[in-house]
Design a protein around this nucleic acid. Structure first.
Lengths: 218, 218, 218, 218
DNA sequence: CATGAATGAGCCTTCATTCAT
DNA sequence: CATGAATGAAGGCTCATTCAT
């Protein structure tokens, strides 16, 4: 009966936008196709038509918002290789945290990813290959430079994990931190301050590592 | 048909065991009462009888496994205060990680907690007050001692967050790490090695902090 | 565990009292055995033990309260036959209405009976044989005397029905009347006033019948 | 398996028809949505789709059959005001009784209404406002004309109640009357004969009232 | 006699999906 | 392409009833 004056091609996009919002908020199981269609203002059957079924819509939504997040907060560039590794580490953490923490649509990717990690589906592959691994490789090169070539692969990996672990914690633990400190959380919510701390903490740790190891293997 | 008195009085416990397993694996929404009862080999109405409804069963399950986890891996004792803070930090991380990472039933608590943090329900309060806050306070006293009394509250909190963040990462990211390193993950799965790394990394960082701050405020 | 100091024989009575109250308020289908046992403060299994099942409890409850109602408001006595039929009709209606309308326990019988008439079960027989028929026979003799022996059986029955119909209406329509007249219902709730009106209305009608019929068949 | 388009667009009506039949027979609590859908030969989810839930279906069913009953047996017209009140009273009772008593679907309204009166739900408002009150107003004007303007409001209301009470009795007491007279019930089942009796009985009563009251207040 | 844990059937409702238009 | 009515499979929960003590 009703006709939309919109471009008919954006029905699909409207569904993806709505799905990002609702999947991020309620998870896969907690989301109903009806709610998404209602939010997107499209007919129920549209999901089946454009995405075959709910699971496939979830996949496509994850990919869609992952792409959006990396478009807004890209990987730090190789051309930045001229900067000292301390600065590059801080920039890395800032981009990494911003990508997930920023309010509005951009944060949907972070939430979707976090849920996927905690309760993996087949979609975890996408996240790992297209988001985690590239980030890890960049981080690896920064850490390698920081620690010097005195170290073994295992130590480098552990240090990378320490940095990623800290960064993620400041994102996904927001509700816990708010409860723990009764909302009085200066420095725990702004990407700049988070990046300052994580970078400084980690640079300190790694440089001490470097010194210690140099002593170990003269 | 079925026996009434298979094993008297432990129906409630059997439900809690099964619920821990299944809630941990599939989350609250993804779990059906029928599945729990089937796993526990009890009638479906038993949940209503013993726990009133699914939500209340979830609460009780969380408390049950939280208690079990802390019974097996208790908080490190105040009497350990005689040890140097470096050793206490390592012990803390070891207990913390073991509590969640150990295979078998004990790890259900960790998974339940992780899901609760990522997709909070009303039960988040229980987790924060009874598991997170006590741990945080202990960690806080260790960090305070390490950093010396040159530091402010905000810095101490951020350092605690860095430690907790690393520790948690090694727990919940197991599937991601396995994919990322193709299963070749020495040092990423054993609580002892995780504790070694996290403690060393963090002690290095915090001691450097202490030195830097002493320089800042002579 | 707990023991009642009460006479153990009154468990049954307590159930019947509670059942009267709750069946009357909510009907057979709307009543749960648990509610009755909770109200009676007895164990769930007591109903099964004393009454075999819910349906049988309902039967026994109906009989119990029917007996109670007729004990408190008995049939008007044959010895009253000396009174003029106008007075006996008024007395009949008064007893009839009081039996059902009086507040408290006595009214439970009325409500049980009304529900039984509107949605008959096998228990309708009890009501008809032990409550309706005796009342009808008494009323029949009064009407016969009022109308004189000029009338046929069918007319007498119809007049009896008119009287019973009016009397019942003032009982079961209380909620409707309250809504219809917005609670302003003088004369519609007190058994004395109801009896005054119904008796006067009906005596007038029947006496006119008598005169008309005498004219018809001289 | 099943066809989708057996008969398009009348699923809703089929449900209402089946619901009328079954609600009338077993009441709200005694009726299952499954039974209705089975009778209507529709899928069980159709109730949720078209009526949201069981309670709302009950409301709509009541309205649907109330409308049907008043369409088949409308209120007597104001244009009949030219007829003498005796005739109008008989016509009123005839319509009133027919509306509920006629066999087949039409009687469902009567049964639904009777159950609603005896065991009221939130739907009683609908019945009172849309069925009872209009009828009562019409009856009130007839009685007022019959009794003359010698009477007070309370007496008029009581007389209306006497007429309604008789009329209803002949409807809802069919099962009791059949048992009481062993099925030999001439004059108790045909709307015409019921209307003859009730109208004559009541006209006699009211006219006598009128004479008595005229004597009271000369 | 009384208890209360346990049972199994069934009810209302919700959900993803499909079909005819 | 889009619509919305219709489907079938569960899901959470309630209830009368039973059994061992």
């Amino acid at each position: 009966m009703e006709k939309y004056s919109d471009n008919p091609l954006d029905t699909k996009r409207r569904i993806l936008e709505a799905a990002g919002k609702i999947f991020a908020a309620r998870g896969f199981q907690g989301t109903t196709v009806r709610d998404i269609c209602s939010e997107a203002d499209v007919n129920i059957a549209a999901v089946s038509y454009h995405f075959r079924d709910k699971k496939n819509l979830y996949f496509d939504t994850l990919k869609y918002w992952q792409a959006a997040a990396f478009q807004k907060y890209p990987h730090i560039r190789e051309t930045d290789a001229s900067l000292p590794p301390e600065d590059r580490l801080r920039a890395f953490v800032f981009q990494f945290v911003s990508r997930m923490l920023n309010d509005g649509n951009a944060s949907w990717f972070g939430k979707l990813m976090a849920k996927e990690v905690i309760e993996p589906t087949e979609a975890l592959d996408i996240v790992v290959e297209e988001a985690v691994r590239p980030s890890f490789e960049i981080l690896r090169s920064i850490v390698t430079e920081l620690i010097g070539n005195v170290s073994d692969e295992r130590t480098i990996r552990l240090c990378c994990a320490s940095i990623i672990g800290q960064s993620l914690y400041f994102f996904y633990s927001q509700p816990v931190i708010a409860k723990l400190f009764s909302g009085n959380t200066p420095g725990f919510t702004e990407p700049e301050l988070i990046a300052d701390h994580v970078a400084r903490f980690s640079v300190n740790a790694i440089k001490a590592f470097a010194i210690q190891m140099k002593g170990d293997t003269p």
